[in-house]
C-alpha cells in the first residue's frame, strides 16, 4: 500500500458555498482541459424530517490532486486553498488538521493521492 504524503486538505463544508473557484483554480494552475481538475465540487441536498432539507457543497480532491507540490515547495498555498471564496479549505499536516477538525462539526479531512 502506498504511503500517505502526510499532508491533506481540511474542508469546512458548513461554509463551502459551491462557488467552484477551487475546481477552476486547479484547472488553471495545471492547464487541465475542461473535464479534468484536481478538485471537484459535489452538491448534496439531503431531505430531512418535517419537509426540510440541508444543502451541502463538498470539494473532493480527485486523482489529479497533487496537493500543489510545486506551489507548497515554494511556500505558497495550494491554488484551491488560495482562491476559495469562503476560505473553507485548509492545507497542512494531517495530524495538525485532525486536531483542528475536532473544533467544530461539519468538517472532512482529505488525504489525497498526492
Amino acid at each position: 500500500m502506498p504511503k500517505s504524503s502526510g499532508y491533506g486538505l481540511l474542508i469546512d463544508y458548513e461554509y463551502c458555498t459551491g462557488c467552484y473557484s477551487c475546481q477552476v483554480a486547479c484547472a488553471q494552475e495545471y492547464r487541465w482541459p475542461a473535464g479534468m481538475s484536481g478538485i471537484r465540487v459535489i452538491e448534496v441536498v439531503e431531505r430531512l424530517p418535517k419537509d426540510r432539507e440541508y444543502l451541502v457543497y463538498l470539494p473532493f480532491p480527485t486523482e489529479l490532486c497533487i496537493l500543489c507540490a510545486p506551489r507548497t515547495k515554494k511556500g505558497l498555498e495550494p491554488s484551491c486553498v488560495k482562491h476559495c471564496m469562503a476560505a473553507c479549505i485548509k492545507y497542512g499536516k494531517i495530524e495538525d488538521l485532525a486536531k483542528e477538525m475536532g473544533k467544530k462539526p461539519r468538517m472532512v479531512l482529505w488525504s489525497p493521492r498526492a
Binding site: 462557488c19 467552484y20 473557484s21 475546481q23 477552476v24 483554480a25 488553471q28 488560495k82 482562491h83 476559495c84 471564496m85 476560505a87
Partner: peptide, 12 residues
Amino acid sequence: QGRLCARCLAMT
C-alpha cells in the same frame, strides 16, 4: 483578500 471567483480564474 486574495480570493477569486471561477469566472475570473477562467480568464486564460
